[in-house]
Amino acid sequence: MAPTLPSFKIPQSILVVIYTPALDVLLIKRADAEDYWQSVTGSKDSLLETFEQTARREVLEETGIDCTRGAHLENHLHDWQLENVYEIYPRWRHRYAPGVVHNTEHLFGLQVPAGMAITLSPREHTAFQWLPYQQAAQACFSPSNAEACLMLPRFVAPKGGI
């Protein structure tokens, strides 16, 4: 029997800023890192998975919000056409193939109604909070996540909401 090769994370991920019409941003607290607040993030499951597919899957897995094809919020996921390339934190490099030290992160926004029900994946996150976008930026542990929160007003459609 052939030996099983280790499965490494793909260094291509998404970041989805989930927000309300009032620009309150959802932050979720990582289960594996004390006081690490963030937006929805996640890596591609395969090289064939698109960034959009990854974003829709991760939002559902991490928050219970369904923005998959055919869902009520399907058209509220917006590709910001921005990417960040950053150095992977040393504490998480073991998840990637040897020698991989950089990740490419693709940004999205998802507008949801105020009071949206959130169902966390307890394996990944332990708490959530809604904060005005400036405060959310201050609470994020990741500089790229903080910057995405601060860019939110640029990507929001004129008032009208959902």
Rank of each mutant, 00 (worst) to 15 (best):
A2V: 04
P3R: 13
P3N: 10
T4G: 04
T4F: 04
T4M: 10
P6S: 14
P6W: 14
F8H: 15
F8K: 15
P11M: 07
Q12E: 14
I14M: 11
V16N: 01
V17M: 01
T20R: 04
L23F: 06
L27C: 05
L27R: 03
R30Q: 09
D32N: 12
D32E: 10
A33T: 14
D35M: 05
T41G: 12
D45F: 14
D45K: 15
L47G: 13
L47K: 10
T50N: 07
F51C: 11
E52T: 15
T54K: 08
A55S: 10
A55I: 13
V59T: 05
E62H: 05
G64F: 07
I65P: 08
I65L: 07
R69N: 09
G70A: 05
G70Y: 02
A71M: 02
H72D: 06
H72P: 08
L73W: 10
H78Q: 08
H78W: 01
H78G: 01
D79I: 01
Q81K: 11
N84T: 14
V85I: 09
P90D: 15
R91Q: 09
R93W: 12
R93V: 14
G99P: 05
V100T: 15
V100I: 15
H102W: 06
H102G: 00
N103C: 13
T104G: 08
G109F: 09
L110A: 08
Q111N: 02
V112R: 04
A114P: 00
A117K: 12
I118E: 02
I118P: 00
T119W: 00
S121V: 00
P122V: 05
H125M: 03
A127C: 01
W130Y: 06
L131K: 06
P132Y: 06
Q135C: 03
A136D: 09
A136R: 08
A137Q: 05
A137E: 04
F141R: 15
S142F: 14
N145K: 07
A146Y: 10
E147G: 02
E147V: 03
A148E: 03
C149K: 05
L150I: 10
L152R: 04
L152K: 02
P153M: 08
R154A: 09
A157W: 02
P158A: 06
G160T: 05
G160H: 03
